[in-house]
Design a protein around this nucleic acid. Structure first.
Lengths: 200, 200, 200, 200
DNA sequence: TGATAACCGAGACGGTACGTCCTGTCTTCCT
DNA sequence: AGGAAGACAGGACGTACCGTCTCGGTTATCA
């Protein structure tokens, strides 16, 4: 059965996402309201409710657009494994300084308060990002160790690698410094080599 | 000049803290309202506002009462350094399953959304806990290495030690398993020994 | 530019006015609250505040709807001037026994306490009623005296006519009796005839 | 049974009455609160509640002190009856311009809203004032008519005399002008002479 | 000359209503 | 059908006073 009438307006979608982003930066999460977004975007409230369930849903949308690329693992074949790993951690550090990182931070915060947010965030963005992190780590270690590392171990290594960075940001609200990046990198590599000794 | 008139009622204070604690567990942070707390505690709203600025302020108070002891470093002289360290991490893991841990989790979440909360939490509980963590780690390593470790290094070691645990809880909402405790413990001890080699 | 969106609901308006009227009679002015009206009318508080500034504003609205007719001057051509005048005063007396009269009484009371109420009441209902009273009196006297009476005199006659009635109600809270109606009527007619003697 | 301890402090009583009076003038009846009076008088709230039941009770107290004298009937033997009567009405007019008159006006207003206030005001001040008015009128008419007027008629004459003045003040909030005083005076004297014709 | 009872200041407390803000649903009209 | 405008029921907010109460400190009278 065919349908009639105009389709979803892309300009409305973008206006809402940008308004939400701007207001989050300007007034913080608590000052972010559906009514405020509607007004700023020059859009009716009902239009927002038609396409998104809540302000969290809007933010998840902005995250999907912005964060994926910033946290992608990139390999520089010319550089060593340690440099590549450290570079990825630096990307994480930079991400948290950027607007998209603030969005993730807010969503992670909200996820502690609302299980719906937690479920949506974990089933979507965080799950995908976890997969990218594990895959990126696997590839890098494979180059270093010349053998595959099992997934279980990879998971723990990822926790050890990223945990201290998120801890800094989420718990202390402090920027991630170079020294933390370096020591974390070295530590994880050490453990990886121990756990999966190169076949002589 | 001495105060006259009735003093602050301790029973009111406790009724409010317990009501807040209970409601947080029952209904979550979003379902926690000043009016709800007042009703549950059998207290007038104004009485709450007289002593606390917000529901966050109340939770900070419950945390101060409950969390300090649960996260205290305890040394078992009979056991080795590694066992002591692992036991402390297990205490952290258990804490996050307990009601007081839920309070901290909610507050950490809210701290991502409101800078006031962040400032209060960091200036109060987190600062003290950080000091306890660093001091506990210092004492433990001193026993192991038979020499003092400088504060800067201790700070990084604390990040590496606790980061992965908080990451698990805050980002993935998953319980901290034994394996993570063990690998984190070993890793940090390895790094500590490398960084501060025992004088021969 | 034409308006879009839903219009003001007439049923809501009436529900509020009736609820206010009922509650004023049941519980008196002090027991009349916006929250009470909202609850009785099955309406949200905000809906009331959207259209009225205060409970006084609501009562002014009920007055406009109810009192105009009750205090209208009516001429019975068959009857004499004195009978017509007395009939009008009896209408005033009856009005103060009816619910709408209670509303006016309450508003007059409140007008002594709040200058805003006084200004609104006087600029609205009282001004119109005064005009009706003066006009009614003018017509009646014209019939009796066969000549026009000047406005200044009419004003004073209206004061002398209505003053004693309001005095009874407002100051002594007592009902207006037939004797007061009669003596006031006679008195005013006497004075009117003196002041504007029939041209011989 | 005898009692011990300090007696009621007169300075406290006066401080409260003055504070109430001042605040009534400054902020109006709605802005007059027990807490405000207590603060302004430098007195504890409980002290007020010990001696007065409500703010209305306080105002009744100030009225008793101030109004009695202002509304007292005074006879100037040298002047005629009409002049004496007009002088009394002028006293009423002046009274409503003075602070004590404002208090009575506020209390009369409140009496329309709360039956307790109405009862207290009518059983106290208004009853006494009514008696003074009737007695004053009786004396004056006795001089004029050279015979006594019965109480029933006197009551109606008092209504006709004072009603228009109160009507002006309470309903229109306008000052009582000389013309109203004069016509009311003449009118009432006319009626009195008609009703009780001098024995020839 | 104490004891003791009332007065008084300060202000905590359980309440009620205030007026505001935002939510999510809905209705109306326009394109 | 999509969208702007915005009315509506509802719920929580933080504030202002109410009237009651508990504290200490301070008189004044009477034993």
């Amino acid at each position: 059965m065919s349908r009639t009438g105009p389709r979803r307006s892309e300009s409305v979608r973008l206006a809402v996402l940008h308004a939400a982003d701007d207001l989050l930066v300007e007034r913080g999460f608590a000052g972010l309201t559906i009514e405020g977004i509607a007004q700023r975007a020059g859009v009716a409230k009902q239009t927002i409710y038609r396409w998104w369930k809540s302000k969290v849903d809007i933010l998840l949308d902005t995250l999907a657009d912005d964060a994926r690329e910033a946290l992608q693992w990139r390999t520089d074949e010319a550089a060593g494994v340690e440099e590549n790993l450290a570079a990825q951690l630096r990307r994480v550090a930079d991400f948290f300084e950027a607007p998209a990182g603030r969005v993730l931070q807010a969503l992670l915060g909200h996820a502690q308060l609302e299980s719906d947010t937690a479920a949506a965030l974990r089933a979507g963005f965080l799950k995908e990002q976890r997969e990218r992190d594990v895959a990126g780590l696997r590839d890098l270690l494979a180059r270093d160790l010349e053998r595959a590392v099992d997934d279980r171990t990879l998971g723990h290594l990822a926790d050890l690698l990223l945990g201290p960075l998120y801890y800094r940001v989420l718990v202390f609200g402090a920027p991630i410094d170079e020294e933390l990046v370096d020591s974390t990198t070295r530590l994880v590599l050490t453990l990886a080599r121990e756990a999966s000794p190169k076949v002589p």
